[in-house]
């Protein structure tokens, strides 16, 4: 199986690459259009800032490429946020795959921003999630969130309920980091590779 991990000027994208290795897949790190289009699966990872990353994607014509992909695509963290319409992070126009905006968390007393650490996911509603993962903990690091909407595929509560995952057609996305979520995350990545 060919798995392409989209290479852009992001932080810790190596972890995704290593997670693929642990799942027995030798992924390629690439921004090459042919390599991405011809891959069986595409992962769009992300740690970074929305505006700079969108600029990078446009400069390399990766924006249209990602939107036009037909194979299963998995967006992670910032990757998921960039697959939405617009982000409050530096007023950024995004890819518009998921018809929703991205909002900044408003700290509510005891709840600190960023939302960082292990939190529970529930109402799992996607082929991406084995049912037994309901209420299990996964690892989040983010200050912006996607509200609950039509494409919500898993929920999490922090400040208010928000989308822990999205799913629409061949596009899958998680706000959490499956590559850092221990055995639960490994099960999700395995499922993605099996889709």
């Amino acid at each position: 199986m060919k798995v392409a991990v989209i290479d852009y000027n992001a932080g810790n994208t190596r972890s995704v690459y290593f997670a693929m290795q642990r799942a027995g897949v030798d992924a390629v790190f690439t921004k090459d259009h042919v390599a991405i289009k011809s891959a069986d699966k595409v992962i769009f990872p992300g740690v970074g800032e929305a505006n700079t990353t969108m600029e990078f994607l446009r400069r390399h014509q990766l924006d249209d490429l990602i939107c036009g992909l037909k194979q299963p695509v998995l967006g992670i963290c910032l990757g998921m946020q960039l697959m939405c319409n617009w982000s409050e992070e530096n007023d950024t126009e995004c890819l518009g795959i998921f018809d929703t905006d991205v909002r900044r968390f408003k700290p509510t007393g005891s709840e600190k921003v960023p939302h960082m650490g292990w939190n529970q996911v529930y109402d799992l509603d996607s082929t991406l999630f084995p049912k037994e993962l309901e209420q299990r903990h996964v690892y989040f690091v983010h200050s912006f969130y996607v509200p609950i909407g039509d494409d919500t595929a898993a929920r999490c509560d922090y400040c208010q309920p928000f989308s822990a995952a999205l799913h629409k057609n061949n596009f899958y996305a998680t706000q959490f980091h499956p590559e850092k979520s221990g055995p639960v995350g490994a099960a999700i990545l395995k499922r993605f590779l099996e889709i």
Binding site: R14, F18, R22, K180, G182
Partner: peptide, 8 residues
Amino acid sequence: VAHNLNIP
């Protein structure tokens, strides 16, 4: 560590 572990 990153090669072998899947926690932060």
